[in-house]
Design a protein around this nucleic acid. Structure first.
Lengths: 396, 396
DNA sequence: CGACTTTCTCCCGTCACAGGACAAAGGTGG
DNA sequence: CCACCTTTGTCCTGTGACGGGAGAAAGTCG
């Protein structure tokens, strides 16, 4: 099924589409208040959008003291697909044109099985969402992968934790399989876009979005736009050195942040503590399941286990140390912490805050909120929908 | 004397002015090749610019196989003033509209004497340049100060090394005194703009410009535009911590980069080495002048003094460590090293390169040049001229 | 010297756009 | 229920921006 063949013909139409996406259904008069076009021009553009089918009439708006205005909204049948491929699981969600999540599936998966196997699973999940009646088809999809991406082509480049993905034409392949336009980006950038669209970063132009999961990455937003760097690897802060000649890291270097704090490092440290009998709580959990993960540490910490709390604090300090440097350098208006380990919650946040507020200059930290992301696992998929809608809602 | 009352009336005119600024005199036909306007439209806009006096006719161009085209150039009487206020000296230069330096004065000065005294000196220097026949007046001035600036207002905010400058209305005051438009920015940003306009960064969209002088700062250029951060303190990397619980720094923290490497720290380390008799070369120089500076260390290193070389290498390593982190984070297309200590030259550069290429990921360093700035002390003043010309050559 | 190219100016047709006039539809106060 | 005001939407027209053709001017090349 072919869908949404139309695209905005000019910048005005694109502007209107984005207003409707971000502000929901709106009256023609309200749109007029926001766009600075003459009434005639506005009417022409809206009529053209109605002709294309991208937007539809939606009844009458409440009166503002005179004649009631006609409501306009994005076509209710439009559907975007957001796909967030993590190291160990996939999130797939379907949204409407206003980027509201209509259905969301999460499944475990190993990214190391390679693109073919992963996309088979993703397509099955998408089919399941479609079969459940949430969508008749998809008008576009935004995909996040856990590694650097050459953005214009939508191709992963030299991803450390994704063997077999290097150079795989993700965008082209998925576009073919799904039969709709596709955009591909780093998962961290997607999270940043999600929090920007529907989360804590709604009104901030310049911010950082630190995602701590299996690895550590950082989404960079400059003037409302994601910054990707010269080769698409911007934000790759997991391998910043925090300890000269420190722990060996999987990347071959020593003392990387990821070697000290990340889902994997935390699990390893917890298992070591359990072995050494330093924590009753962790030892019990280890005997139960045979291994430990960040979730176990979070649970132990919630139960008040001092060793678990120490592990979290130590990791938070390391992370805070790096973030403090980034804050001095980048002077953001907001720092968002997200990803799998947000379950560690306020212990982690407190450690990071302490470190940043102590190390960075007052001018940079004076009015700097450091907060947890508020969307959790939906940040990525909303970001994906946002990515593709930004693309589709721009002049052809 | 009132000058350059005219401003471009629209984006097309602004575009043309910038092309003439960056590309020098140009024929109408050549301009047409670059701007994608119809011949009629182009002719109209050029004629209007000629009417305002911002550009003037300049003879005939060489033939390109047919009728010769008329040359156009920016008004030859236009003059911009570039002022680079450092911690211990001021640079003032006058440029033409193509930002070529026509005259350049450097004088020692202590920024701690406060804005009134400093500006008195700056105005005297500007008057001297004018008196020497290089300019009849100034059409605009760009000022760089060694501290964070609230850019839109042109006011320093909480500058650590500039007591008495906090909140001083630099832009307004100088605009009054000079009788022309003024823009104010951080000196490091000016250096970045200078290297971008006329130096090594000419064709790079995203790059970092690290200035090592009395302090250490970093200009950040994103998509060809200087990024200043939320409060104008972006790039303040001198107080990133390189050693937990390390040397005390003037800022009150411990282990800051500036405490280990900067003009001041290097001088102190050199004096200590001289005291301890670790270096014949440095001791001799110390006895000669009673104190040591970065220049002495550079001279000693040039003479092959191992202690001096070690000092430079150690500092380079620290700096490289920080830059490596920034490279991972920002993924620039180029890193420029500049400022007072560039006299330390390739010893310093080699140490920085080693550190960066070893610590950052291959994808980020793969094609990353790390080079010395090629403009030296003129980078700042050219950047100043560029700053104000960007402002004036934009639609009113 | 003639054929071809390039540049520049003039001119005209088209189209985008703003804003006024007016009709439609609602509120408000008596 | 009616007169009067406000808001919204539509239609129309005048203005001005713009592209591109025609043709003159100025050169090159063989």
């Amino acid at each position: 099924m072919r869908r949404m063949t139309a695209r905005p013909a000019n910048a005005h139409q694109a502007r209107l589409l984005r207003l409707l996406r971000d502000g929901g259904p709106n009256s023609r008069a309200q749109l007029g208040d926001q766009v600075d076009l003459s009434r005639s021009k506005l009417a022409v553009e809206v009529d053209r959008l109605l002709e294309t089918g991208l937007v539809v009439a939606d009844g009458l708006a409440a009166s503002r003291g005179g004649r009631r205005s006609h409501n306009i909204r994005l076509a209710p049948a439009l559907r975007f697909l957001g796909v967030d491929i993590g190291a160990t699981s996939v999130d797939v969600a379907v949204t409407n044109a206003e980027l509201e999540v209509l259905g969301h599936i999460n499944q475990p998966m190993d990214v190391r099985e390679g693109p073919v196997a992963v996309f088979e699973q993703v397509l099955a999940m998408a089919a399941k969402l479609r079969a459940s009646g949430l969508a008749e088809g998809f008008d576009g999809a935004g995909i996040g992968v856990p590694g650097p991406v050459r953005f214009p082509e939508g191709v992963p480049v030299a991803p450390p934790i994704m063997p077999g993905w290097d150079g795989f034409p993700v965008r082209e392949a998925l576009s073919q399989d799904l039969g709709c336009p596709v955009m591909v980006d780093n998962d961290v950038n997607l999270m940043a876009m999600g929090e920007q669209h529907a989360g804590v970063a709604r009104s901030v132009g310049d911010f950082l979005c630190v995602k701590i999961g299996t690895g550590i990455g950082c989404g960079i937003v400059v003037g409302g736009e994601v910054y990707r760097g010269t080769t698409g690897s911007a934000g790759d802060i997991g391998h910043i050195q925090v300890e000269p000649d420190g722990r060996p890291c999987a990347c071959g270097n020593k003392g990387c942040l990821e070697a000290y704090f990340s889902g994997a490092a935390l699990a390893r440290d917890a298992e070591e503590a359990a072995h050494q009998g330093r924590s009753q709580e962790l030892s019990t959990r280890f005997e139960d399941s045979g291994r430990l993960s960040a979730v176990d540490v979070a649970a132990a910490a919630a139960a008040g286990d001092p060793t678990a709390l120490d592990l979290i604090r130590a990791g938070g300090n390391r992370t805070g140390q790096v973030i403090a440097g980034l804050v001095s350098f980048f002077n953001p208006g907001l720092v968002v912490i997200g990803g799998g380990v947000t379950g560690l919650g306020h212990t982690l946040l407190a450690a990071i805050r302490t470190q940043v507020y102590r190390q960075s200059l007052p001018l940079a930290t004076g009015n700097l909120p450091i907060v947890l992301g508020e969307l959790g696992p939906t940040a990525g998929v909303i970001g994906g929908a946002r990515l593709i809608s930004d693309h589709l809602f721009s002049p052809a």
